Every structure is written in structure tokens, then in C-alpha cells.
Amino acid sequence: MEFQMHTDDELEHSSLLEDLFGETLLQLRVFQKKLATEGEQRGLIGPRDVDIIWERHILNSAAVVPFIEASVDENERFKTVADVGSGGGFPGIVVAACLPNFKITLIEPMERRVEWLNECVSELGLDNVTVLRERAENCVSDIKHKKGLHPFSVVTCRAVAPLTKLSGWTLPLLKHGGQLIALKGRSAPEELRKAGKEILKYGGCNPEVFDAPIAEGFEPTHVAIINKK
């Protein structure tokens, strides 16, 4: 089935965004506008993405939200999510806006991107977010040696690295019973197959790929989900 990309202008003149996001749409419109005016200049999105930010980046990121909600017991006291390699805020900023009752930690090593993320947190009024300038590998070490970080309920990532590398960067960040929920492309099943040894090495189990629907008429994305033993 062929899918046509929807422009930002088309989506703003439809009811879809309001239907999908409700009150959260106000915050996400701030994010979209900031990306449209500054994102390309600051190296966060490509020139071809400027007019399709909603579908390419925000709606794509939001597709992970139902999987995060389903992975955490609603009665769990500390609902914590780490977004590894947050970059321009995908999916971390979108997840934080959509899930205000979750504590979100954005992990990003590049100073200029950390500056961007902090600006987004401030301008969107997100009080459930911590931005951490650090490499994921160092966060793993901090958790291992109990240096102020605690294992997370969920770890997310988007367009960071193949699962052969991601497994070692992300699975050790999870508590027992937690989940890695990675937004991936069509190659996700092959990535899981290639990463089998690494997944087992770092305590992962039951790896699966799921279609992640965006909305009717939109091409679904995919999530790779790996449980932590």
C-alpha cells in the first residue's frame, strides 16, 4: 500500500492533531514551531523535513507512547523513562508532553543538543523532564556503581544505532522486568536477529517487533521491544 506524506499545513487544517493529542497539542505546537524555525539551522532536522515535521518526527515519536503506557503498571509509584540519544527531542520531548505523570530523563552527549533540549523543556513547560549530558555507556556505569542513577522502567530511542550496539547501551539501564522500546524502520526484524547474542549477553529476552500505528491513512512505524530479565 502506498502512503503519501502529509504536510504540516495540511495537518494544521484538519482535526487530526486535536483528536490525537487533545490538550497536549498546545505544547506540541510550540515544539513544532520551534523545529520549523530553528531545527534545520541547528542541524536537528534535514531541509526536506521542514514542511513535514508533524508526520516525520512528532507523530512518528508519539507512536511509541501507547507501548510505554502498556509496559508500566498504572499503580507503579515511580514511572521512569530514559530516552537515549535524544538529539532533537525524538521521541523524548514528545513522550514527556504526552505522559506528564512519567519522569523522563533525556540522555544526550552533545552540548549543542543538550542546550536545545533544555530550551524545549523550558518553552514547553515540561516539569517532568531531566536533561542529562552524558553518554549512555557512562550512565550504565553510574547505575552499576550506584552513582546517583537508578534503573529505569523503560528505555526508548530513535535512530541512534543498530541493536547490536544499542543492546549494550540500553538494556543495563533497565530495572528487572523493564523494557527497551526502540522506534525502528522496516529492518527491525533483521536487526533483532543480528543482535541475538548481545541481547542475551545484557540480560534481554523475548525480543519482538510490532507495527506502531500513527493514524488512519498514515504509514505505521515499527517498535522493537526487548524485556529485561
Rank of each mutant, 00 (worst) to 15 (best):
V209G: 08
L124M: 01
V84E: 01
V64L: 11
P189H: 05
P109W: 01
K103R: 15
I68V: 02
L17Q: 05
G88W: 12
E111N: 12
D127E: 14
H57S: 05
A70S: 15
I107S: 01
V84I: 15
I199V: 10
G43C: 13
F21S: 07
S153T: 04
G217N: 08
A36Y: 13
S61I: 08
I199K: 05
V121H: 02
V65I: 07
P172L: 13
T221F: 04
D49E: 15
I68R: 00
F218Q: 09
N101V: 04
E38Q: 12
R186D: 07
P189E: 04
A195V: 04
K79T: 06
G39Q: 00
N206C: 07
H6M: 12
S141W: 06
Q27G: 09
L25Y: 04
T164C: 00
G168W: 09
T130D: 13
E23T: 14
R48C: 07
T156K: 07
T130Q: 13
N138T: 13
T37S: 14
A36N: 06
G196P: 01
G89V: 11
T80E: 06
F21N: 01
R193W: 06
T221P: 14
G217F: 09
K103N: 15
T24F: 06
I181Q: 02
R186G: 11
W116K: 02
T80H: 03
E55G: 00
G85N: 03
G177K: 06
P207N: 02
P109I: 00
G46W: 06
K228D: 08
I53D: 01
R42S: 04
A212S: 02
A62I: 13
H57Y: 10
E134N: 06
N118H: 14
L11Q: 07
L106W: 03
E12C: 10
F102M: 03
V131F: 05
R186V: 11
P189T: 02
L11T: 04
I181E: 02
Y202C: 07
V95A: 01
E208V: 15
M5L: 15
C205V: 09
S15K: 12
E2I: 14
H176N: 14
P220C: 01
F102A: 06
R56W: 02
R193A: 12
F210S: 07
G43N: 10
Q32H: 09
L16I: 10
E208A: 13
R56N: 05
W169Y: 15
P207E: 11
S187A: 09
E74P: 03
L35Q: 02
L183G: 11
P189Y: 03
F218L: 03
G92Y: 00
M1T: 04
V154D: 06
I214A: 04
L28S: 01
S141N: 12
L171N: 01
